[in-house]
Amino acid sequence: MNIHTSYLGEITIDPTEILNFEHGIPGFEEEKSFILLQLDENSIFQILQSIKTKSLAFILTIPYELVTDYNFDIDEATLKSLEIKNETEVAVFSIVSLKDTIANSTVNLKAPIVINTSNKKAKQVILDNDHFAIRHKLSFESVKG
């Protein structure tokens, strides 16, 4: 199937790869379907593109690449709603807020995107944890991209 995007033009995607956010994400509750697109092979950044809104896309990164001690327990509500049965089927990403420079850019460690890779159900989880910031500085040194 083909979808329209503002940044990559019209692209062909595999419909079985579409991620289903049952309740959208905070601020975008009506956006239930997204697709994860690789920016390029070596990049640690990916694009989370809305299926229905061509201008809606986010940059995602793998938080473990930025913060070595990043870890959290997935709460029961998330396990249940995403039907997660096994740790190995879970993928975790963080939303990057890109500013004019990388040094001013931030990454949201407080509310990661959790994906069940088996059934493509996904959710932005708000962690009950004071160690992780919503706007964690994306320091240049730590970006290996």
Binding site: I47, F58, S97, L98, D100, N108, Q124, R135
Partner: peptide, 17 residues
Amino acid sequence: SNAEAVIKSFELLKNMK
């Protein structure tokens, strides 16, 4: 924070690459 993070410019994205 989600609203702030919506990609606004392709130039920045290209720089990220």
